[in-house]
Design a protein around this nucleic acid. Structure first.
Lengths: 223, 223
DNA sequence: CGACGACCATTGCGACAGGATTACGGCGTG
DNA sequence: CACGCCGTAATCCTGTCGCAATGGTCGTCG
């Protein structure tokens, strides 16, 4: 899961990013509306968390722009005060949820999950593969009755592969899904994660295997 | 799928070529407008990626030349800044899309796919042949419910044959489609690929066969 | 009608690129 | 300060490719 965070208060942004990252969510962060537009143009996110007060304008103007570009990604708007009229205006413009500051990280994550669960959104029910069940929203993995806890990066790899099980996932797609634009990898870090993940999957007897398509990407198959 | 890349920044050009090649797209690359005209005259491409700033002129002048020659190949223009007025000018001259630098390879590929999907262009819906479904845009092949993973070159052979299934594809056409003008083959490499591809197709029971027309080329038939 | 030559099919080989694995060190966390 | 995670890089391993040798098939021409 990857989200775009548009927030100019550094401390808050860092807190949100840290909290979500811990849960296996990749976060692209920017403080400017202009950059946000650029990023949204370049890739698709599972959700967008948007502050209203931004240095270069009202965040809410971002939403019509998105929608007119045909982007249906759910948007959560953060606002200093939870004024009812702000709420209405925002929702009218296509925001999917509102959250007044201050708030608990837990609540933000819960609302994100809720949005992603909605059938209208890019709903993703749990994925079953082999003896394994992957919940791409809660970001957890069960093998049989037992929860398999995986390190963050390996979890992200597994979830994105599971979302397209049986189909090849481009190497580059994996990279953009798992790393944000700040952390560029300049080695085979991805391969290393896949390798370690494979080991864990066989150890846990998950009933799946990760294949490589040389020069193209990876592919999750049940066996 | 084969595209013409006109770009004089070596590093960027290499990055684009590498990225597209990985996805099974053959790339002819030139840094000069003059060479581009020459190449476009000699063969047809599925799309053209064109930088504006070139050593021997503004890339955009290429488009009217193309159009007046009756070439409808879609063109994506790369430009340093995504200025609205540049945008308008370019689109007026017949460019099909604009992409401001810097951009993600993913986006370029996505836009290429989008252009090729347009009905006006050389639209290519999935091709069904036997038990096999070939998606010439995503460059993948399904047999029944299973994805058939093929090495890059064999994949390219299969896709170009599938695009004209039931019709003979000239040997020379296959060669220019699969190799760019830098890598010339001086052996029966093509035959070897066809042979290995045949084996994989029968193994997977794809329900098609590749016939040879002596002295002319190859032909994909369902059986 | 038979034989020769051109063309094609198949397969093994060596080179090479790209992936797999793993040890190491840095870093954060409890 | 001990442990686990992560990125890096060194090493090993495997798939793919172009090539060429061999054997087969088809057409043509004497």
């Amino acid at each position: 899961m990857k989200i775009l965070l548009v927030e100019d208060e550094t401390r808050l942004a860092e807190a949100i990013a840290a909290s979500l990252t811990k849960k296996g969510v990749a976060v692209d962060h920017t403080a400017l509306l202009g950059d946000a537009i650029e990023l949204a143009r370049q890739q698709t996110y599972d959700a967008i968390v948007l502050d209203r007060r931004l240095p270069d304008g009202d965040g809410i103007t971002f939403i019509p722009w998105l929608r007119s570009s045909g982007v249906v990604t759910p948007v959560i708007v953060l606002t200093a005060r939870n004024e009812p009229n702000e709420r209405v205006a925002g929702l009218d413009l296509g925001a999917d949820d509102y959250l007044g500051k201050p708030f608990l990280m837990e609540e933000l994550f819960a609302r994100l999950r809720a949005l992603l669960r909605r059938p209208s959104a890019l709903a993703e029910p749990s994925i079953v593969a082999g003896r394994m069940t992957v919940d791409p929203i809660r970001m957890d993995v069960m093998v049989g009755e037992l929860q398999l806890d995986l390190p963050r990066r390996e979890l992200m790899v597994l979830v994105t592969l599971a979302k397209r099980k049986g189909k090849t996932v481009l190497r580059s797609a994996l990279e953009t899904e798992i790393y944000n634009y700040e952390e560029t990898i300049q080695s085979n870090a991805l391969d290393a994660h896949v390798s370690r993940l494979r080991k864990r999957l066989t150890d846990a007897d998950a009933g799946v295997s990760i294949h490589n398509i040389r020069g193209v990407g990876y592919l999750l198959k049940e066996h």
